[in-house]
Write a protein that binds this DNA or RNA. Structure first.
Lengths: 114, 114
DNA sequence: ATAATTCGCAACCCTACGGTTGCACGTACG
DNA sequence: CGTACGTGCAACCGTAGGGTTGCGAATTAT
């Protein structure tokens, strides 16, 4: 359980930075409409924009595209999400360690926010 | 334990999108140099750029600045990180639910990636 | 065969963003 | 004192990124 490959973490956080993209991920997780233009109908933007966002998500391996007839279906791939969660958890753990060391050496200061 | 306020999640993911910013967060979590220019020495960029990044992190409540004499110290505030982690976990849970429902209705298809 | 969908690609705006440089202000030190 | 250090603020530059529009290609329907 070591540090996740920064490469993937990079692309995942980059993909998740955009609110629209996160909304798409949410919808896909909820099992909503899986076609590009279907997703566009639920949003105030063009089908093209959605398509671009889906490309970005696919670039981060967060989504898989599958062509069915003349429409392409998109499926969520949550594994990269775990990667990001691991990064967060790792940072949190290091912080806790450091905080523990501080408390050990100083003792006091009731504000234990986390 | 409901969905985190999208406002905060937005700013957090936005802040975490940049690799340099994540490096700063890592360093702060590790308890490294806490002054702006001290952090800049460990990076191939200007002190100003680091300062800007720290401002961004403070905008996402990921960091707290405290002036000590003529230098300002920066401290990590991991609570927003938990917010982001919760979002990821929520999406993952919904996906698992949806996947479970699928498997319940169809039965088969051995590829249970997650 | 023709018309209607649904998509991908490319070009094009415009804004946001990471980065630098320059300067002015407060603080420490000789 | 004056000088050196550490910040913050503002202006500026270049690129990446979200969004739109306008095609052409493939698939389904009439």
């Amino acid at each position: 359980m070591r540090a996740p490959a920064h490469r993937q973490v990079d692309s995942v956080f980059g993909a998740l930075a955009d609110p629209t993209r996160r909304r798409l991920v949410e919808t896909l997780a909820r099992g909503g409409t899986v076609t590009a233009s279907g997703l566009a109908e639920q949003l105030p933007i063009t089908r093209q924009a959605v398509s671009k966002h889906l490309s970005a998500l696919r670039g981060a391996d967060l989504v898989t595209s599958t062509r069915v007839g003349r429409e392409t279906h998109y499926v969520l791939r949550p594994q990269p999400l775990d990667e990001a969660a691991q990064w967060i958890q790792m940072v949190g753990a290091e912080w806790d360690d450091r905080l523990g060391a501080l408390r050990r050496s100083v003792e006091g200061r009731g504000t234990a926010s986390r």
